[in-house]
């Protein structure tokens, strides 16, 4: 990585400390030409109300999703996006966003599908930056168009499809949705109706670990010790675990993916972005309702 990692004491305990930056570090690096700051929010208008000076916006819906197929953009479209945002293949990209970095983590994961090497999250995201009274602006930067190569996505290492998950049953699987979604009491997030599914419940064998357990009150990631207590001690993930995480559309599970892959150092972690909006609508896939995880269905 061309830009030195944030030497923050908290990060040193994570498996990959270089994947997080603190607000102090970012404030000192805002003028660093090798660093591009990206805001990625759930709310499409939020960036326009004020953002970190110099930050460009990447919208998960209009920029990263394909307009027609339920899939991410291809290499050419990603290269166009990166070029327009002034990002080169060597840029250090720091992403931050609303809601404890859900969408920022989602964007980071999509950047990772394209193998962009140096992409980091601002610990605490947008809310913490604002809460600390740090500077914002509504001035939208006009970056010089950068030269970004067309690199096709490499999904296999970090993205699971429905068929992969069917073949994965019996190996660690984490459902990061709310408990009511897990049990099937509801088919959508509290206050997020209708983007639901025809069936409620969870994928057999999945452990329920709501994503927010990995986030502290201020939106920062919990400490290494706290995260180990959840995922290693409680869920029982072993060092060589082959893990799949899912939620509703793959955004909350990107947050958990980031925790498992970058902060805890599990090397085989995939995000099933089809998640419950695919599984809960698919024909003849096994589903378990209630609090029990359920066993591997006989095939």
């Amino acid at each position: 990585m061309s830009v030195a990692a944030d030497p923050h004491e908290k990060f040193a305990h994570y498996a990959h400390p270089e994947r997080l930056v603190s607000a102090d570090w970012l404030a000192q690096n805002l003028d660093n030409p090798s660093v591009v700051v990206v805001e990625s929010d759930e709310d499409v208008l939020l960036y326009s109300t004020g953002h970190i000076p110099g930050a460009v916006k990447v919208d998960w819906h209009t920029d990263l999703n394909d307009e027609v197929t339920r899939d991410y953009v291809d290499g050419a479209a990603f290269a166009r996006l990166m070029s327009a945002k002034g990002i080169t293949r060597d840029s250090t990209v720091v992403i931050y966003g609303d809601k404890s970095n859900w969408w920022a983590a989602y964007a980071l994961w999509v950047f990772s599908l394209f193998g962009h090497e140096d992409v980091r999250l601002l610990d605490g995201g947008r809310d913490k930056w604002l809460a600390e009274g740090r500077p914002t602006t509504t001035e939208v930067p006009a970056p010089q168009t950068a030269d970004y190569p067309v690199v096709e996505r490499n999904d296999a290492p970090i993205r699971a499809y429905l068929s992969d998950v069917l073949g994965h049953l019996g190996k660690p699987l984490i459902d990061v949705r709310s408990v009511d979604e897990y049990t099937g009491a509801r088919t959508h997030m509290p206050a997020y109706p209708e983007e639901g599914a025809l069936r409620g419940g969870h994928i057999p064998t999945a452990a329920s670990v709501p994503w927010a357990r990995a986030a502290a009150e201020d939106g920062t990631f919990r400490s290494r010790a706290e995260l180990d207590a959840i995922y290693r001690d409680e869920v029982g993930l072993k060092d060589d675990a082959d893990v799949v995480a899912y939620c509703r559309i793959g955004e909350r599970s990107s947050h958990t993916w980031f925790v498992l892959f970058h902060l805890l150092g599990f090397t085989k972690v995939r995000n099933y972005d089809g998640s419950w909006t695919e599984w809960g609508n698919a024909v003849r896939v096994p589903i378990v309702k209630g609090e029990e995880r359920g066993g591997v269905p006989a095939s």
Binding site: H61, Y192, P193
Partner: peptide, 14 residues
């Protein structure tokens, strides 16, 4: 409807 997700559009309908 292109720029804003269907979910949010449904929020306004609601």
């Amino acid at each position: 409807t292109r720029a804003i997700t269907p979910l949010r559009m449904r929020g306004m309908t609601a």
